[in-house]
């Protein structure tokens, strides 16, 4: 039983940064903006989180810094794509290049230093319960934040007026604008939220998952997060499902190896990617449902006309 709990905990820790970054990007894309700079914002969050945590000695301040720096970095993207109407795909990719370089520059002094780790939740009695105790009451704070974020975003997008407005902008910014909605203002806020989430995900990496700073430590997780948004068909609750499938696939292959299954590790390593494709093929066969959820204006610049 203990081993099952441990495996679930490992998967949760591995999936959390993917989920957090994905839920942020989901809001961005729902507003009709495609930000391919997730990897860049994430790595900026990671270096800021580690740095602030190390310098102040408080991992909480580190997490806060990660969120702020992620948002600040996404502002650059927002100004470019929203105010200057630059191409979103190219700008997002450039943001990733810039983030990888800038984080390396900022982190030069942090290499080889042990960082602060955010403590896991501990509630006497509850956390000590068998099985559910550690799963429900004993995880790291970002895990709980990720659940809250997903629930919050689901509620916001589908149960609030503002959420409806945001979605309508993503479907047609021209009609939204005609109705007198400040398209760019919404999009600015959405992009900043996406940046904050990506920063938080980076902070989870350098403050919880592997408390240290090393260059390129995101190792492609931003890209997986982007894929998860598509996988989720832009619906918040499908994100965690995808994240956990992916995490389980990755973890399962490590266990299979430790168990001694004689299959080349490269094949096992590619399973999570293939599984994600397979599941997406299954769920996207219903064309109408997919179309309904895909923001129609995704990736198209909008400039208000006077």
């Amino acid at each position: 039983m203990d081993i099952a709990v441990n495996i679930l905990l490992t998967i949760a820790t591995a999936a959390t940064p993917l989920l957090v970054a994905a839920i942020g990007e989901l809001v961005v894309e729902r507003s009709g903006v495609l930000n391919l700079g997730v990897e860049g914002m994430m790595i900026m969050g990671a270096v800021a989180g580690f740095g602030a945590g190390y310098l102040t000695g408080s991992p909480w301040l580190g997490l806060l810094a990660a969120v702020l720096v992620g948002a600040l970095f996404s502002l650059l993207f927002a100004v470019m794509t929203l105010s200057l109407a630059t191409n979103q795909v190219a700008t997002g990719l450039s943001l990733t290049l810039l983030g990888l370089g800038l984080s390396g520059m900022m982190g030069t002094g942090f290499v080889g230093l042990p960082g602060e780790r955010l403590p896991n939740l501990y509630i006497p009695f509850l956390t000590d319960l068998p099985v559910v105790g550690r799963l429900v009451f004993g995880q790291d704070p970002v895990f709980y934040i990720s659940i809250a974020l997903i629930a919050g975003v689901a509620w916001f997008l589908f149960r609030t007026r503002t959420g409806l407005t945001l979605r309508s902008i993503g479907d047609s910014h021209t009609s939204a604008h005609a109705l007198g909605i400040h398209v760019l203002r919404y999009r600015y806020l959405a992009v900043l939220f996406g940046g904050a989430c990506a920063g938080l995900a980076g902070g989870q990496l350098s403050l919880v998952y592997t408390p240290q700073w090393v260059e390129n430590m995101t190792a492609g997780r931003g890209w997986i997060a982007l894929a998860l948004v598509v996988f989720a068909s832009w619906r918040p609750w499908r994100g965690p499902a995808g994240g956990y499938i992916f995490g389980a696939g990755r973890n399962g292959q490590l266990h299979a190896q430790a168990f001694g299954i004689p299959v080349p590790s490269q094949f096992l390593s590619s399973l999570p990617y293939l599984a994600t494709i397979a599941v997406l093929v299954l769920i996207s066969r219903n064309k109408r449902l997919t179309m309904m959820n895909t923001p129609a204006a995704l990736g198209q610049p909008f400039v208000p006309d006077r």
Binding site: T86, N87, A90, S94, L97, L98, G101, L102, M105, T108
Partner: peptide, 24 residues
């Protein structure tokens, strides 16, 4: 350092993309 070189590259890309706005 290689990082500074990459930051500079990123800056260049942003300016090029930004200035293309002037075309339209």
């Amino acid at each position: 350092s290689d990082k500074v070189a990459r930051v500079f590259q990123g800056m260049l890309l942003f300016f090029v993309l930004g200035c293309d706005t002037l075309i339209h």
